[in-house]
């Protein structure tokens, strides 16, 4: 973290969406009723040395931070779309999550839709892009140790499955419930 701002999520795509040209289309698409927010998040580390060194400014200066505490480095749908793990190549979405999601108008997907296909769906083929973020969260959990991801695989599956079946995830210990959009926001919060 070399500066106190970090570019991350955008509403209708994600940080790793490919070329700036595509983003330009999204931003310019005033005609389409598609809201786009590209957020540069303020990361004001408190305390004295707020600007911990990072790769580009300070070569390979690394601070004395305790090596064991790595932050959670979940990866976004855009990342997984471009580097999809071989072993999940033709795994079906419904086999992992016990059901399918819907397209922009609420029409359920084909039953044999694969995880990889979901990542390539456009806005109107994956309502709220909930499917894409469910796949990303699942893959992050499968690589939990390497990524320091804070959720186990079955936690992710349980959350997604509840949304697919009753449209809402209800957390047992707190009673808090989240709809598909809120679950997507939560998953997005776990990406680096």
């Amino acid at each position: 973290m070399a500066n106190d701002m970090d570019k991350n999520t955008e509403l209708m795509g994600d940080k790793h969406s490919p070329q700036p040209a595509r983003r330009k289309f999204l931003i310019k698409s005033a005609a389409a009723s598609v809201p786009v927010i590209l957020t540069v998040t303020s990361r004001p580390a408190m305390g004295g040395n707020f600007c911990t060194p990072s790769g580009f400014l300070s070569g390979n200066l690394s601070d004395h931070g305790d090596d064991h505490d790595r932050s959670c480095n979940g990866l976004s749908p855009g990342y997984w779309k471009h580097s999809f793990p071989k072993q999940f190549e033709d795994v079906r979405f419904s086999r992992v999550f016990g059901g399918v999601w819907v397209d922009g108008r609420g029409v359920p997907w084909e039953p044999d839709t694969t995880l990889k296909q979901v990542l390539h769906f456009r806005g109107n083929e994956d309502r709220y892009r909930f499917g894409a973020h469910a796949v990303a969260a699942y893959l992050n959990a499968e690589h939990r140790i390497r990524l320091h991801y804070p959720m186990e695989v079955d936690t992710v599956i349980d959350i997604v499955r509840q949304v697919l079946t009753v449209g809402m995830y209800t957390d047992p210990s707190t009673g808090l419930s989240m709809d598909a959009m809120e679950v997507k926001e939560f998953f997005e919060g776990t990406y680096h």
Partner: peptide, 9 residues
């Protein structure tokens, strides 16, 4: 802003 070190400061 994304390239600023102390924008939020």
């Amino acid at each position: 802003v994304g390239n600023a070190f102390n924008f939020t400061v």
